[in-house]
Amino acid sequence: MTIVVTTPTGHVGSRVVRLLLQAGVRPRVLVRDPARLDEETRARVDVHRGDLTDAGFVRAAVQGARTVFWVDPTPHTAPDPIATSLATAAPLVEAARAGDIARVALLSSIGAEKRHGVGHIDALAGIEERLDATGADVLHLRCAYFFTNLLLDLEGLARGVLTTAFDPGRPMPWVDPRDIGDVVAARLLGDAWRGRVVQAVHGPEDLTFEQVARILTGVLGRKVRLEPVDDDAVREALHAAGLSPAAVEGIVGMTAGSRDLVPEQPRDLTTTTPTRLDGWARTELLPLLRR
């Protein structure tokens, strides 16, 4: 069984690699800088060094693998994030179409089911559609809002401010990326799925940003104030930071297009994962803010 893992040092990919190793599988990891892998992991995986935006590297690196776990590496700040994401996934799609690989598990997102109008998430929808057309077995993991997105504004949280452009009172699924890694690893190791499968990963509960602010207040031991902002304010800040118009709309669109979203997959036993936000915040967020 040859399993390829992309972005093996990320929040999800690192968890997937660890679980595969614990299951006795030696994965093939595609990584730009092997030094980012800890020494023990490097000794237990097959390292293919290269850039996922290099089509030749990707085609060679996935050749002969049974399963590929694909995480789009495109930053939201890329000049044209949607086009870049689709171009980066093109060699993977071609490998699946050519039969070089049998199965692809894609780290997608809730919102991809809308297909259009959700900013950079539209790229994941496009990758889903392209993979669906290859004839390979494909698994789309539609994931909730990552707990780790809170780490993007540590400075604000250190001041006791949680800023959001989401509707503060609308519940939405939140998830620990490590729990996503658990689901991914279980799926990669299993042989039950065939054809096209969609697996939502909704986390333990839906939360409003108002609830998140209260949870963080309890964990951090000081008041965390919620500061809602509108889309125009976000656009202005992103333009001021030098982002391209396409990048700005890709970021703003992810929030704006998700406000009325009802996930295609319901919350049930298979879509609900265990780690709660308060526990994650104590072990991951609080130490960072104390430093």
Rank of each mutant, 00 (worst) to 15 (best):
V4M: 12
V5L: 12
T9I: 12
V12Q: 13
G13D: 02
V17K: 13
V17E: 13
R18D: 15
R26A: 12
P27F: 08
V29A: 13
V29C: 09
L30R: 10
L30M: 15
L30I: 13
V31P: 05
A35W: 12
E40D: 15
D46I: 10
D46M: 10
L52A: 09
D54M: 09
D54S: 10
A55Q: 00
F57N: 04
V58I: 06
A60I: 04
G64W: 02
V68L: 08
F69N: 03
W70D: 05
W70K: 10
D72M: 07
D72W: 08
P73T: 07
T77D: 13
P79E: 15
P81A: 10
I82A: 11
T84D: 15
A87V: 04
A95Y: 01
R97F: 01
I101V: 14
R103D: 03
R103Q: 15
V104P: 06
S109Y: 14
A112S: 15
E113N: 08
V118S: 07
I121L: 10
G126C: 10
I127E: 01
R130E: 04
G135L: 06
A144V: 06
A144W: 09
T148D: 15
L150D: 06
D153C: 03
D153I: 06
L157I: 02
R159N: 11
R159Y: 10
M172F: 04
M172D: 01
W174I: 00
D176V: 04
P177K: 10
I180W: 04
I180M: 11
G181E: 09
V184E: 13
V184D: 11
A186P: 05
L188H: 13
L189D: 11
W193F: 06
R196F: 00
R196H: 13
V198N: 00
T208Q: 08
T208M: 02
F209P: 02
Q211D: 08
V212N: 02
R214G: 06
L216C: 11
T217V: 14
G218Q: 03
G218W: 07
V234R: 04
R235H: 02
A237C: 00
L238P: 00
A241R: 09
G242Q: 07
D260K: 09
E264F: 05
E264H: 08
R267V: 14
D268F: 05
T272V: 13
T272L: 08
P274Q: 04
T275I: 00
R282N: 01
E284K: 02
L285G: 03
P287A: 03
